[in-house]
Design a protein around this nucleic acid. Structure first.
Length: 432
RNA sequence: GGAGAGGUGGCCGAGUGGUCGAAGGCGCAGCACUGGAAAUGCUGUAUAGGGGCAACUCUAUCGAGGGUUCGAAUCCCUCCCUCUCCGCCA
């Protein structure tokens, strides 16, 4: 019945194998109640299927009698019918109990986050994250120079209109204009082309997704308040292309030879950003709608670790091609996202703000999403859950912010990296 | 949106109440035949869950969910999807 959410065999046999890793996330969970439920569900299923077997035997017996010449409405068959009815009633009762328990089980299991990978460093919060790599030389203000933040630059150049966007939608939306719109488009094309050259299949998915899709990748049921919903339909605005791409293969069994499947999906992303009032209200950093190119891998379980490194390198390659200094941070268990088993965040240097800001988050989800979305791979005779990975490659708005701050010139213009020139059609924005 | 037709295993396709998890074909795998291959023949080929060390076995699944029945792929209801025609539309 129902989709397997967390390995229920594990839950029945040894819940400490679940609670111990969850404790590393800072979650104190007591699964003994759930374990009881799972055992109960198993026992009920056993009872029920035995009864069903008995019912099947009776049904077959009736058929045999009738074929042997018994009257379908006659005495001989009547007794069997009554037995059949009795069993049907009992099965119905058991099924009802089973459904109740199953529902409780699901309700509680679905809100448990993924178990962190053993490789994920322990820690309580952001403060315990580990920097593993730095690339490039951050631009610092020269003597007498004052570096502006991207929203100041953008406003001055007239390439973004925040105020009129409120008229169109509400706050935390932006309208890009002129060279700003063009730069956004150039960046999307640039990223997709680069990833395409590295073996990714380009994807342009639906951005309205159904409840099953959001559940499969882990956004639902727990984070409903984070997504925009279409009230009259079973559809939501996707918060990331990770959602539709996960569901691209939802319910499938993929042949081992097909793996790894590597996708680069561009999509606009929609987030309510509930609970972030007042933070990052200016500029392109925290919007209700933003563009992102997402990298996504479906891999055999034993390949996911190497895939995680490669996916992260692929995201970093974009930053390097754009000459944007960054650092790679490995998240500790306490800072891990809901679906992730292990995560590298990439933080780009924002020269105007004088700080590193997250621009990509590259995670391996192990079999967590595969279990929720039922995605398996076949090797030989057996099938097993595969592993999924995702990472931004990159968040486009934040990339633009970094470029504006990194390339700002004394004359008010912004120099763009050489790699972007063929896409943008010029080597600078503004004056000149 | 209106009218009609349909959704069966990896694919095609039969099956309108009783050993149907489902004929037949294709595909695929193994074996035989061959110098090797093709052709041919034989055998095997769904998924999930439960029990068992295992051989194996039980249950469920013919778009989804309900219902009728001792028994449903087959009958009834609701929903989803696909196709054709009409309407509308970028």
């Amino acid at each position: 019945m129902g989709p397997p959410v967390l390995d229920q065999r594990l839950l029945r046999n040894d819940p400490t194998l679940i609670t111990a890793p969850l404790a590393r996330r800072g979650l104190a969970t007591d699964l003994s109640g759930l374990q009881q439920l799972a055992l109960e569900a198993r026992d009920l299923e056993q009872q029920r299927s035995e009864l069903q077997a008995e019912g099947n035997r009776i049904g077959r017996a009736v058929g045999e009698r009738i074929r042997a010449g018994a009257a379908p409405g006659g005495e001989e068959v009547k007794e069997l019918r009554e037995q059949g009815n009795r069993i049907k009633r009992q099965v119905g009762e058991l099924e009802e109990q089973e459904k109740g328990i199953e529902a409780q089980l699901m309700e509680q299991l679905m809100v448990l986050p993924n178990l962190p990978s053993p490789l994920c460093p322990s820690g309580r919060s952001e403060a315990d994250n580990v920097e593993v790599k730095r690339w490039g030389t951050p631009r610092l203000a020269a003597e007498g120079e004052e570096l502006q933040e991207h929203w100041q630059i953008a406003e001055r150049l007239g390439i973004v209109d925040t105020e009129r966007s409120v008229r169109i939608a509400q706050s935390r939306f932006v309208t890009l204009l002129g060279q700003g719109a063009r730069l956004e488009r150039a960046l999307i094309s640039f990223m997709l082309d680069r990833h395409g050259q590295r073996g990714y299949t380009e994807v342009l998915p639906p951005v309205l997704v159904n409840t099953a899709s959001l559940t499969g990748s882990g956004q639902l049921p727990k984070f409903a308040e984070e997504s925009f919903r279409c009230a009259d339909d079973d559809l939501w605005l996707t918060p990331t292309a990770e959602v539709p791409v996960t569901s691209l293969h939802r319910g499938e069994v993929l042949a081992a030879e097909q793996l790894p499947l590597k996708y680069a999906a561009y999509s606009p992303c929609f987030r309510r950003e509930a609970g972030s009032y007042g933070r990052d209200t200016r500029g392109l950093i925290r919007l209700h709608q933003f563009n992102k190119v997402e990298l996504y891998w479906f891999v055999a379980p034993e390949d996911s670790e190497a895939a995680h490194e490669q996916l992260t390198l692929d995201a970093e390659a974009i930053l390097e091609a754009l000459e944007l200094p960054y650092r790679r941070i490995e998240l500790c268990t306490g800072d891990l996202g809901f679906s992730a088993a292990r995560t590298y965040d990439l933080e780009v240097w924002l020269a105007g703000a004088g700080t590193y800001r997250e621009i990509s988050s590259c995670s391996t989800c192990g079999d967590f999403q595969a279990r929720r979305a039922s995605i398996r791979c076949r090797d030989g005779k057996t099938t097993r859950l595969l592993h999924t990975l995702n990472g931004s490659g990159l968040a486009v708005g934040r990339t633009m912010a970094a470029l504006l701050e990194a390339g700002q010139q004394a004359d008010g213009s912004v120099r763009l990296p050489a790699a972007l020139v063929p896409y943008f059609g010029a080597d600078r924005i503004g004056a000149g």
